[in-house]
Design a protein around this nucleic acid. Sequence first.
RNA 1: GGAGGGAUGACAGAGCGGACGAAUGUACUGGUCUUGAAAACCAGCGUGGUGAAAGCCACCGAGGGUUCGAAUCCCUCUCCCUCCGCCA
Length: 433
Amino acid sequence: MIDLHLIRSDPSAVAAALARRGVEAKEIEDIADLDVVHRGLLQRQESLRAEVKSLSKDVGAAKKSGDEAKATALMERSRLIGDEEREAAHEADAAGEALHGALLLLPNFPSEETPEGLSDANNIEISRWWPGKEDGEAEPTYSESQRVPHWDVGEELGLLDMERGARLAGSMFPLYRGKGARLLRALGAYALNAHSDSYEEIRPPSLVLTETLTSTGHLPKFSEEAYHLERDDLWAIPTAEVPLTSMHRGEILEEASLPIRFTAQTACFRREAGAAGRDTRGLLRVHEFDKVELFAYVTPDQAHEAHRDILERAESMLRDFGLHYRVLDLCCGDLGGSAARTFDLEVYAPGCDQWLEVSSVSWFADYQARRANVRFRPQEGGSLEFVHTVNGSALAWARIWAALIETGRQSDGSIELPEVLGPFMGSTTIPAR
RNA sequence: GGAGGGAUGACAGAGCGGACGAAUGUACUGGUCUUGAAAACCAGCGUGGUGAAAGCCACCGAGGGUUCGAAUCCCUCUCCCUCCGCCA
């Protein structure tokens, strides 16, 4: 959430900053206007309220001194002002709600370093890695046996059964089996082990309250993207970021306790409402996938380092897996609404010949902390400040699974998996059929 | 699912219709004393909104209501505890 004080004190600066991501200046003007109206109504209500309270004290005094006539007169007057106050309160509340609602829809400021531009064409590729790069090897080319898409390989080897997944839950709900299912388990176990050195492992609920999904910025704007269980008014989480960001919701943290880091693997549910018919084959885009998330509450001073640490951890896993990948610095227009800066990691999947987004590593500044009301008490004293939040996937397994299956495919049709998964897989070879 | 008990500041805990934003204790901060520390004593010690400021307003789990006036009474909900039922 954007600080209302900023809009009040310098609306044109706010408008200019948000124009970088395509927000109309009028949106900010409207909020500024609404704020003036709201404060006016609030002042009227509060002065009426103050009068009621002061009269009520007089009533008490009059009764104590036995002056019933005076008390009755005061009560009558107070009742009239009370009615007026009730009306004023309704008006002020309505204006306040409208203001808050509009504020919740405003996206975050992009950071100064975020590249300009409004479409994904303006994202900047900042690095690229492939196995052997450090030894001077050229960017890889791929053999014919690696040019088979994972949905074909998966079916051929009995690792992935999209058809039965669809029978159970409809299309885009994958069903893994045998070594395919085990590979998913191995990836999660490997990653959680790797991160639990400095990130506390969490296993959060998969269903959360509206408030929890609002704190991260997924609601109210993106309700179409999430599964909602109407009967219980609960939402299926689209990412572990959602529960993790609310871990300390409404709390005041001690500066000395920061950074507070969490890692969690959860299923992630996405309706993909806006993406009907695009990239729907195999695991390219699915309604449910497992993902390990890294998350931290930090002070503003710690944010940069924490953001970098998550990026480094995500990248290091990709290198462990020997996957060909690139890092994109997302431009203002492609940034998620809550983020100030985001790096996307994309792996190259040779079978379907596509770069697949497998991680999004973001710094949110105080935007989410403001929505979730997570503050810290500075060690040096002074007033409370909002924490910053950072998070990133490490990693989203469905697409990693696809890239590993395609990249590891041998000429005999078997699959070679990365050594690091050996302890979790039993064997790093999935035999041909 | 049923019956009962509870939720108050960092923590513990009083208050149960009239000056209560809230006693008291602990913790914490500053000071006095001390060579230093402890102890003792003194003082301070929630958050937010609004306002130039004085101030005013809100917040005692959440939301509604009664009342001139609500932490206190009523209703609904959430969570915690105890018992019963059901259950992996």
